[in-house]
Amino acid sequence: MTATATGAPPTSRRVQGLLALAGALAVLAVLSVAVGSRAMNLPEVWSGLTDTASDAYPVVTQMRLPRTALGLTAGAALGLAGALMQAMTRNPLADPGLLGVNTGAAAAVVTAVHFIGLTTFTGTLLVAFAGAAIASVACYLIAGAAGATPARLALAGAAVTAAGYAYVSAVQLLDTATLEQMRFWSVGSLVTAHTVPLPMVIGPVLAAGAAGVLLARPLNALALGDATATGLGVDPRVLRVAGIAAITVLAGTATAACGPIVFVGLVVPHVVRAYTGPDQNWVLPYSMLTGAVFLLAADVLGRVLARPSELQVGIVCAVVGGPFFLYLVSRRKVARL
Protein backbone atom coordinates (compact mmCIF):
# COMPACT_ATOMS: atom_id res chain seq x y z
CA MET A 1 0.00 0.00 0.00
CA THR A 2 2.70 2.47 0.96
CA ALA A 3 4.54 1.65 -2.25
CA THR A 4 1.69 2.63 -4.52
CA ALA A 5 0.45 5.54 -2.43
CA THR A 6 3.69 7.41 -1.93
CA GLY A 7 5.53 6.32 -5.04
CA ALA A 8 8.70 4.37 -5.80
CA PRO A 9 11.04 3.27 -4.39
CA PRO A 10 9.22 1.78 -1.40
CA THR A 11 10.20 2.89 2.09
CA SER A 12 11.50 -0.55 3.02
CA ARG A 13 14.03 -0.42 0.17
CA ARG A 14 15.18 3.02 1.23
CA VAL A 15 15.67 1.81 4.82
CA GLN A 16 17.66 -1.16 3.49
CA GLY A 17 19.80 1.27 1.51
CA LEU A 18 20.58 3.25 4.65
CA LEU A 19 21.60 0.06 6.45
CA ALA A 20 23.81 -0.97 3.53
CA LEU A 21 25.51 2.43 3.62
CA ALA A 22 26.11 2.13 7.36
CA GLY A 23 27.66 -1.30 6.75
CA ALA A 24 29.92 0.04 4.00
CA LEU A 25 30.96 2.84 6.32
CA ALA A 26 31.95 0.35 9.05
CA VAL A 27 34.06 -1.69 6.60
CA LEU A 28 35.76 1.44 5.26
CA ALA A 29 36.46 2.69 8.78
CA VAL A 30 38.30 -0.55 9.56
CA LEU A 31 40.21 -0.33 6.27
CA SER A 32 41.07 3.28 6.98
CA VAL A 33 42.63 2.25 10.30
CA ALA A 34 44.46 -0.71 8.74
CA VAL A 35 45.80 0.78 5.50
CA GLY A 36 48.75 3.12 5.27
CA SER A 37 52.52 3.29 4.85
CA ARG A 38 52.58 0.73 7.65
CA ALA A 39 49.86 -1.74 6.70
CA MET A 40 48.27 -3.82 9.44
CA ASN A 41 46.23 -7.00 9.49
CA LEU A 42 43.11 -7.22 11.64
CA PRO A 43 44.79 -8.69 14.76
CA GLU A 44 47.33 -5.86 14.65
CA VAL A 45 44.52 -3.30 14.35
CA TRP A 46 42.80 -4.92 17.30
CA SER A 47 45.89 -4.90 19.49
CA GLY A 48 46.55 -1.32 18.38
CA LEU A 49 43.13 -0.39 19.68
CA THR A 50 43.23 -2.35 22.92
CA ASP A 51 46.84 -3.04 23.93
CA THR A 52 48.60 0.10 25.08
CA ALA A 53 51.94 -1.69 25.01
CA SER A 54 51.75 -2.83 21.36
CA ASP A 55 53.81 -0.88 18.82
CA ALA A 56 50.64 -0.43 16.75
CA TYR A 57 48.97 1.45 19.62
CA PRO A 58 50.42 4.93 19.00
CA VAL A 59 49.91 4.68 15.24
CA VAL A 60 46.31 3.56 15.61
CA THR A 61 45.16 5.87 18.37
CA GLN A 62 47.13 8.98 17.51
CA MET A 63 47.19 8.84 13.71
CA ARG A 64 44.76 6.44 12.09
CA LEU A 65 41.70 6.80 14.36
CA PRO A 66 41.64 10.62 14.28
CA ARG A 67 42.19 10.46 10.52
CA THR A 68 39.27 8.07 10.10
CA ALA A 69 37.00 10.11 12.35
CA LEU A 70 37.90 13.31 10.53
CA GLY A 71 37.38 11.76 7.08
CA LEU A 72 34.00 10.46 8.13
CA THR A 73 32.87 13.78 9.60
CA ALA A 74 34.18 15.93 6.74
CA GLY A 75 32.69 13.57 4.14
CA ALA A 76 29.28 13.66 5.84
CA ALA A 77 29.47 17.46 6.10
CA LEU A 78 30.40 17.91 2.43
CA GLY A 79 27.79 15.41 1.21
CA LEU A 80 25.03 17.14 3.16
CA ALA A 81 26.25 20.63 2.20
CA GLY A 82 26.12 19.63 -1.47
CA ALA A 83 22.62 18.16 -1.17
CA LEU A 84 21.37 21.27 0.66
CA MET A 85 22.92 23.56 -1.91
CA GLN A 86 21.43 21.69 -4.86
CA ALA A 87 17.99 21.62 -3.23
CA MET A 88 18.12 25.28 -2.24
CA THR A 89 19.22 26.58 -5.63
CA ARG A 90 17.30 23.91 -7.60
CA ASN A 91 20.59 23.68 -9.44
CA PRO A 92 22.03 20.23 -10.14
CA LEU A 93 25.51 21.70 -10.63
CA ALA A 94 25.59 23.36 -7.22
CA ASP A 95 28.35 22.21 -4.90
CA PRO A 96 30.09 24.12 -2.11
CA GLY A 97 33.38 23.26 -3.83
CA LEU A 98 32.33 24.49 -7.24
CA LEU A 99 30.43 27.53 -5.99
CA GLY A 100 33.47 28.96 -4.28
CA VAL A 101 32.44 28.24 -0.67
CA ASN A 102 35.36 25.92 0.09
CA THR A 103 37.85 28.09 -1.80
CA GLY A 104 36.52 31.17 -0.01
CA ALA A 105 37.11 29.46 3.32
CA ALA A 106 40.61 28.46 2.18
CA ALA A 107 41.47 31.97 0.99
CA ALA A 108 40.37 33.41 4.33
CA VAL A 109 42.45 30.86 6.25
CA VAL A 110 45.56 31.48 4.15
CA THR A 111 45.15 35.23 4.62
CA ALA A 112 44.88 34.85 8.38
CA VAL A 113 47.89 32.51 8.55
CA HIS A 114 50.06 34.74 6.37
CA PHE A 115 49.15 38.20 7.61
CA ILE A 116 48.14 37.60 11.23
CA GLY A 117 50.13 34.45 11.94
CA LEU A 118 47.02 32.52 12.90
CA THR A 119 47.87 29.15 14.49
CA THR A 120 44.93 28.03 16.64
CA PHE A 121 42.28 25.75 15.23
CA THR A 122 39.46 27.80 16.75
CA GLY A 123 40.73 30.82 14.87
CA THR A 124 41.05 28.82 11.69
CA LEU A 125 37.48 27.58 12.07
CA LEU A 126 36.00 31.03 12.60
CA VAL A 127 38.01 32.52 9.74
CA ALA A 128 36.90 29.65 7.50
CA PHE A 129 33.24 30.33 8.34
CA ALA A 130 33.66 33.98 7.43
CA GLY A 131 35.42 33.14 4.16
CA ALA A 132 32.77 30.56 3.26
CA ALA A 133 29.94 33.00 3.94
CA ILE A 134 31.54 35.83 1.94
CA ALA A 135 32.25 33.56 -1.03
CA SER A 136 28.74 32.10 -1.15
CA VAL A 137 27.13 35.53 -1.01
CA ALA A 138 29.55 36.89 -3.63
CA CYS A 139 28.80 34.00 -5.92
CA TYR A 140 25.05 34.47 -5.54
CA LEU A 141 25.30 38.21 -6.26
CA ILE A 142 27.61 37.81 -9.28
CA ALA A 143 25.21 35.23 -10.72
CA GLY A 144 22.40 37.80 -10.56
CA ALA A 145 20.85 37.12 -7.13
CA ALA A 146 17.24 35.95 -7.47
CA GLY A 147 17.59 35.72 -11.26
CA ALA A 148 20.45 33.24 -11.03
CA THR A 149 20.10 30.39 -13.51
CA PRO A 150 22.01 27.11 -13.10
CA ALA A 151 24.44 28.11 -15.85
CA ARG A 152 25.08 31.59 -14.43
CA LEU A 153 25.58 30.21 -10.94
CA ALA A 154 28.05 27.61 -12.20
CA LEU A 155 29.96 30.28 -14.14
CA ALA A 156 30.04 32.68 -11.19
CA GLY A 157 31.19 29.80 -9.00
CA ALA A 158 33.95 28.92 -11.43
CA ALA A 159 35.12 32.54 -11.43
CA VAL A 160 35.08 32.85 -7.63
CA THR A 161 36.82 29.48 -7.27
CA ALA A 162 39.52 30.37 -9.82
CA ALA A 163 40.15 33.76 -8.21
CA GLY A 164 40.27 32.26 -4.73
CA TYR A 165 42.56 29.46 -5.80
CA ALA A 166 44.95 31.87 -7.55
CA TYR A 167 45.02 33.98 -4.41
CA VAL A 168 45.75 30.97 -2.18
CA SER A 169 48.60 29.91 -4.51
CA ALA A 170 50.03 33.42 -4.70
CA VAL A 171 50.17 33.86 -0.92
CA GLN A 172 51.82 30.49 -0.55
CA LEU A 173 54.43 31.25 -3.21
CA LEU A 174 55.27 34.55 -1.54
CA ASP A 175 55.50 33.03 1.89
CA THR A 176 57.38 29.73 2.12
CA ALA A 177 56.55 29.37 5.80
CA THR A 178 52.84 29.42 5.05
CA LEU A 179 53.48 27.08 2.16
CA GLU A 180 55.21 24.54 4.40
CA GLN A 181 52.50 24.81 7.03
CA MET A 182 49.68 24.37 4.52
CA ARG A 183 51.19 22.36 1.70
CA PHE A 184 48.92 19.34 2.08
CA TRP A 185 45.99 21.26 3.50
CA SER A 186 45.65 23.45 0.43
CA VAL A 187 44.92 20.50 -1.89
CA GLY A 188 42.56 18.88 0.61
CA SER A 189 44.10 16.34 2.92
CA LEU A 190 43.54 14.21 6.01
CA VAL A 191 47.29 13.92 6.73
CA THR A 192 47.20 16.52 9.48
CA ALA A 193 44.16 14.97 11.18
CA HIS A 194 46.15 14.33 14.39
CA THR A 195 46.67 18.09 14.82
CA VAL A 196 42.94 18.87 14.56
CA PRO A 197 40.86 18.98 17.77
CA LEU A 198 38.12 16.56 16.73
CA PRO A 199 35.31 17.80 19.02
CA MET A 200 35.63 21.20 17.37
CA VAL A 201 34.94 19.57 14.01
CA ILE A 202 32.32 17.04 15.05
CA GLY A 203 30.35 19.54 17.17
CA PRO A 204 29.55 22.12 14.47
CA VAL A 205 28.94 19.40 11.86
CA LEU A 206 26.46 17.62 14.14
CA ALA A 207 24.64 20.87 14.95
CA ALA A 208 24.49 22.11 11.37
CA GLY A 209 23.71 18.59 10.18
CA ALA A 210 20.69 18.32 12.48
CA ALA A 211 19.50 21.77 11.40
CA GLY A 212 20.06 20.86 7.74
CA VAL A 213 18.04 17.65 7.96
CA LEU A 214 15.16 19.60 9.54
CA LEU A 215 14.99 21.68 6.35
CA ALA A 216 13.98 18.61 4.33
CA ARG A 217 10.25 19.32 4.28
CA PRO A 218 10.38 22.99 3.35
CA LEU A 219 12.99 22.10 0.73
CA ASN A 220 10.51 19.60 -0.71
CA ALA A 221 8.08 22.49 -1.10
CA LEU A 222 10.78 24.74 -2.59
CA ALA A 223 11.49 22.06 -5.22
CA LEU A 224 8.14 23.02 -6.81
CA GLY A 225 9.32 26.57 -7.49
CA ASP A 226 9.41 29.70 -5.33
CA ALA A 227 5.82 30.70 -6.09
CA THR A 228 4.37 27.26 -5.30
CA ALA A 229 6.48 27.09 -2.13
CA THR A 230 5.08 30.46 -1.02
CA GLY A 231 1.58 29.18 -1.75
CA LEU A 232 2.29 26.18 0.47
CA GLY A 233 3.39 28.41 3.34
CA VAL A 234 7.19 28.43 2.96
CA ASP A 235 9.05 31.74 2.89
CA PRO A 236 11.80 31.07 0.32
CA ARG A 237 14.03 33.89 1.63
CA VAL A 238 13.94 32.63 5.22
CA LEU A 239 14.59 29.09 4.01
CA ARG A 240 17.58 30.22 1.90
CA VAL A 241 19.12 32.15 4.79
CA ALA A 242 18.79 29.08 7.02
CA GLY A 243 20.20 26.86 4.29
CA ILE A 244 23.18 29.13 3.61
CA ALA A 245 23.93 29.24 7.35
CA ALA A 246 23.95 25.43 7.54
CA ILE A 247 26.06 25.12 4.38
CA THR A 248 28.55 27.71 5.65
CA VAL A 249 29.08 25.83 8.90
CA LEU A 250 29.26 22.43 7.20
CA ALA A 251 31.57 23.41 4.34
CA GLY A 252 33.53 25.87 6.49
CA THR A 253 34.26 23.27 9.18
CA ALA A 254 35.27 20.64 6.64
CA THR A 255 37.55 23.13 4.89
CA ALA A 256 39.12 24.40 8.12
CA ALA A 257 39.98 20.83 9.06
CA CYS A 258 40.94 19.25 5.72
CA GLY A 259 41.40 22.06 3.22
CA PRO A 260 39.27 22.72 0.17
CA ILE A 261 37.88 19.42 -1.14
CA VAL A 262 35.73 19.73 -4.26
CA PHE A 263 33.33 17.38 -6.03
CA VAL A 264 32.14 15.41 -2.97
CA GLY A 265 29.17 17.71 -2.58
CA LEU A 266 28.49 17.56 -6.31
CA VAL A 267 28.74 13.83 -6.95
CA VAL A 268 27.13 12.47 -3.79
CA PRO A 269 23.60 13.96 -4.08
CA HIS A 270 23.35 12.87 -7.73
CA VAL A 271 24.20 9.28 -6.89
CA VAL A 272 21.81 9.43 -3.94
CA ARG A 273 18.84 10.88 -5.87
CA ALA A 274 19.18 8.20 -8.53
CA TYR A 275 18.39 5.68 -5.79
CA THR A 276 16.05 7.49 -3.40
CA GLY A 277 14.08 9.72 -5.78
CA PRO A 278 13.63 13.45 -5.12
CA ASP A 279 12.22 13.34 -1.55
CA GLN A 280 14.61 15.41 0.60
CA ASN A 281 13.57 13.48 3.72
CA TRP A 282 15.66 10.67 2.23
CA VAL A 283 18.13 12.63 0.08
CA LEU A 284 19.64 14.55 3.01
CA PRO A 285 20.42 11.66 5.41
CA TYR A 286 21.54 9.50 2.48
CA SER A 287 23.88 12.27 1.31
CA MET A 288 25.49 12.50 4.74
CA LEU A 289 26.24 8.77 4.86
CA THR A 290 27.26 8.55 1.20
CA GLY A 291 29.54 11.58 1.59
CA ALA A 292 31.30 9.87 4.49
CA VAL A 293 31.65 6.64 2.47
CA PHE A 294 32.96 8.56 -0.57
CA LEU A 295 35.60 10.54 1.33
CA LEU A 296 36.83 7.59 3.40
CA ALA A 297 37.04 5.44 0.27
CA ALA A 298 38.96 8.17 -1.57
CA ASP A 299 41.38 8.53 1.34
CA VAL A 300 41.99 4.77 1.58
CA LEU A 301 42.44 4.62 -2.19
CA GLY A 302 44.97 7.46 -2.07
CA ARG A 303 46.98 5.57 0.53
CA VAL A 304 46.88 2.31 -1.46
CA LEU A 305 47.69 3.79 -4.89
CA ALA A 306 50.84 5.68 -3.95
CA ARG A 307 52.33 3.44 -1.24
CA PRO A 308 54.52 3.90 0.70
CA SER A 309 53.71 7.58 0.12
CA GLU A 310 50.12 8.70 -0.50
CA LEU A 311 47.87 10.77 -2.75
CA GLN A 312 46.01 13.53 -0.90
CA VAL A 313 42.28 12.86 -0.59
CA GLY A 314 41.40 16.14 -2.34
CA ILE A 315 43.31 14.99 -5.42
CA VAL A 316 41.63 11.58 -5.47
CA CYS A 317 38.20 13.25 -5.14
CA ALA A 318 39.00 15.57 -8.04
CA VAL A 319 40.23 12.71 -10.24
CA VAL A 320 36.99 10.80 -9.60
CA GLY A 321 34.69 13.83 -9.51
CA GLY A 322 36.02 15.75 -12.53
CA PRO A 323 34.85 13.29 -15.19
CA PHE A 324 31.52 12.92 -13.38
CA PHE A 325 31.07 16.70 -13.51
CA LEU A 326 31.77 16.73 -17.27
CA TYR A 327 29.26 13.93 -17.72
CA LEU A 328 26.60 15.95 -15.84
CA VAL A 329 27.30 19.09 -17.85
CA SER A 330 27.01 17.20 -21.13
CA ARG A 331 23.68 15.65 -20.18
CA ARG A 332 20.73 17.33 -21.85
CA LYS A 333 18.32 17.47 -18.93
CA VAL A 334 20.85 18.74 -16.43
CA ALA A 335 19.01 21.97 -15.64
CA ARG A 336 15.93 20.37 -14.08
CA LEU A 337 15.85 19.53 -10.42
Binding site: A5, G7, R90, G225, A227, T228, G231, G233, G277
Partner: peptide, 28 residues
Amino acid sequence: AKRLGLLPQGPTAPDGITVADLVARGRY
Protein backbone atom coordinates in the same frame (compact mmCIF):
# COMPACT_ATOMS: atom_id res chain seq x y z
CA ALA B 1 -1.50 28.64 3.27
CA LYS B 2 -4.40 26.94 5.05
CA ARG B 3 -6.83 29.54 3.64
CA LEU B 4 -5.38 30.28 0.23
CA GLY B 5 -4.01 27.88 -2.38
CA LEU B 6 -2.03 28.90 -5.45
CA LEU B 7 -1.27 27.33 -8.79
CA PRO B 8 1.35 29.60 -10.35
CA GLN B 9 2.25 29.87 -14.02
CA GLY B 10 4.63 27.16 -15.18
CA PRO B 11 5.31 25.40 -11.87
CA THR B 12 8.34 23.08 -11.82
CA ALA B 13 8.40 19.47 -10.69
CA PRO B 14 11.66 17.80 -9.66
CA ASP B 15 12.90 15.02 -11.93
CA GLY B 16 11.52 11.60 -11.13
CA ILE B 17 8.76 12.68 -8.72
CA THR B 18 5.61 10.56 -8.87
CA VAL B 19 2.08 11.93 -9.14
CA ALA B 20 1.18 10.74 -5.63
CA ASP B 21 4.30 12.33 -4.14
CA LEU B 22 3.63 15.65 -5.87
CA VAL B 23 0.00 15.76 -4.72
CA ALA B 24 1.15 14.82 -1.19
CA ARG B 25 3.33 17.93 -1.06
CA GLY B 26 0.11 19.95 -0.93
CA ARG B 27 -0.24 18.78 2.66
CA TYR B 28 2.76 20.85 3.76
